[in-house]
């Protein structure tokens, strides 16, 4: 299968602190790749690099063979036209109706007639189960509906790539499962290459073709779901079995720490 994204020796820092430590991996075209890991492992930072919102300290990020690391903003904007992103909070514009939110990228980036755009908007909203909500404002929607509307907007330009940042965050299990089904549908019908950042195990097992697990800014696992389940890496096992971290301090160390010794 063809490579759609190739990350090579990626290193990044926030100030002096190294966040991603020499990361390399590949995303295959038409597959759903899940970037998994606990809070603070660097997975959202990695996603921001993949969509060109952050620049690495060193390394390459090849999207369709074009290195976006260090790419000029005008060139990056062209690459982004083929990317749809669903941010954690859906990032809808609250002053606009859903129809205008979905139409926005079409009005900004294409020369399509308004009549064509209106049909496309209704198609995109129907795709995510929001037919009839064109004239609603984001504030009138539930959390799950906002995510769906955000996805309709992410799909507006028929992207080759879809990126999801914690799609299930803040959703009840039933709504989250509905969103997972939608992600599967987009992969199967539109052959979109999908990258999902999550720490939700039920989502992982429903949508992933390929899994990359990060821990402390390093890849500790890359492979299929079956390979993940039989991995003997202790951090992978802790994550899958929902085991808590070991106590950071002994009671004596804790006492010394709070007593200021």
């Amino acid at each position: 299968m063809e490579e759609a994204i190739k990350v090579d020796s990626l290193v990044t820092h926030y100030g002096e602190r190294q966040i991603l430590k020499n990361i390399s991996f590949t995303v295959l075209r038409g597959q759903t790749t899940v970037i998994l890991g606990g809070s603070g492992c660097g997975k959202s930072t990695l996603l921001k690099h993949l969509i060109g919102l952050l620049q690495p300290t060193s390394g390459k990020i090849l999207i369709n063979d074009n290195n976006i690391a260090g790419m000029r903003e005008e060139e990056m904007n062209e690459v982004r036209k083929k990317m749809g992103v669903l941010f954690q909070g859906a990032a809808l514009l609250n002053s606009m109706t859903l129809a205008d939110n979905v139409a926005l990228p079409l009005r900004e980036h294409t020369k399509l007639e308004e009549s064509t755009i209106q049909i496309m908007v209704r198609m995109k909203l129907d795709l995510v189960g929001l037919s009839g909500f064109e004239h609603f404002y984001p504030s009138q929607l539930s959390g799950g509906m906002k995510k769906r509307a955000g996805l309709a907007r992410a799909m507006a330009l028929d992207p080759d790539f879809l990126f999801f940042d914690e799609p299930s965050a803040g959703l009840d299990p039933v709504t989250a499962a509905g969103l997972d089904q939608l992600i599967l549908k987009l992969r199967n019908v539109f052959k979109v290459t999908i990258v999902v950042v999550t720490h939700e195990l039920p989502s992982l097992f429903m949508i992933a073709d390929h899994v990359i697990m990060l821990d402390m800014g390093e890849i500790i696992f890359a492979g299929t779901l079956d390979e993940l389940q039989i991995s003997e890496h202790p951090r992978v096992r802790m994550f899958l079995e929902r085991k808590p971290e070991a106590e950071e301090y002994s009671p004596e160390d804790y006492f010394k720490f709070i007593a200021g010794d």
């Binding site: 294409t110 399509l112 064509t116 755009i117 049909i119 496309m120 198609m123 995109k124 028929d158």
Partner: peptide, 11 residues
């Protein structure tokens, strides 16, 4: 064909 093409034929 993408969704803009489909929309064109719908119109």
């Amino acid at each position: 064909i993408d969704s803009s093409g489909i929309a064109t034929f719908v119109e």
